[in-house]
Amino acid sequence: MTDEERSKLQRLRAWLSQARYFVEEAYSVRYRSTIARARRDEEDLFMLLVFAEMMGVPNPATYYTLELQPLLLERFHEWHIRMGMEHSPLENFRCC
């Protein structure tokens, strides 16, 4: 392969990736918010499951969900802010 061919190939690749970007944006832009909101709702449910015991809801899987709590720490902050609570609502789970 000569240099010229290689540079042509490179330009083609760049063009393809640009086209892909536009196509993907065009596909997602219209329903981005609807889908993001649906995903957020699902994650809120998951959050509720993980912190169920602390809120007084018996959860038979607590033994397993306990392990997940630290992993959710970052999202936990975002969640309680979004829910209109400035600080963590849970007594034994401090956030900020």
């Binding site: 536009f22 944006e25 065009a26 832009v29 981005r32 918010s33 993001a36 909101r37 957020r40």
Partner: peptide, 12 residues
């Protein structure tokens, strides 16, 4: 990232 997302004007 949900409702408020700055978007390329051609796409928009």
């Amino acid at each position: 990232g949900v409702d408020f997302v700055p978007t390329n004007r051609y796409i928009l």
